[in-house]
């Protein structure tokens, strides 16, 4: 398992290469990308802030839960912090497993859980202001 918070652009190809091993019949990746709008309102850039030591700990916890629940060979999670431009990756997850079903399910589980438990916050910048995104309900 490899967990990382980074202030630099995420090298998604490197993650995918690390999980591309002969025993892995299925590799599933998720790339979270900075979208250019929020419900139609143009977004010009994003900023992610993390409580870094605790965010790493929580990401590891999620990775371990996934490994306990499914038959996985490799779990890679990398999350960006700092300022991001439109089109850049905020998070990349790569899961390698002997079979595809486990890879799909674990990858989905990791991103869905990450969004609700890991102390990382997103600030959206618009042409005329900025706001911290704070979901009030799970999901």
């Amino acid at each position: 398992m490899n967990i990382k918070l980074t202030h630099e652009p995420i090298d998604a190809d490197a993650l995918i290469q690390r999980v591309t091993r002969p025993g892995n019949g299925g590799i599933c990746t998720f790339h979270g990308i900075v979208r250019d709008n929020m419900d139609g309102r143009p977004v010009v850039k994003l900023e992610y802030e993390a409580f870094e030591p605790m965010a790493l700990q929580e990401l590891e916890h999620i990775g371990r839960q996934a490994e306990e629940r499914w038959d996985l060979s490799d779990v890679e999670i990398e999350h960006r912090v700092g300022e991001l431009q439109i089109g850049e990756a905020s998070v990349v997850i790569a899961v390698g497993a002997p079979h595809r079903a486990e890879a799909f399910e674990a990858c989905r589980y990791i991103i869905d859980t990450l969004k609700t438990t890991v102390p990382i916050w997103k600030k959206e910048f618009y042409r005329d202001g900025a706001v911290w995104i704070e979901p009030t309900a799970a999901g």
Partner: peptide
Amino acid sequence: QQFVPPDTVLADGDELAVIPPVSGGA
């Protein structure tokens, strides 16, 4: 660095982080 219930009594030397609703991921 461990989530605790709001009614947790603090001790001398504790570090208390206030965690607003999180929005990491995509």
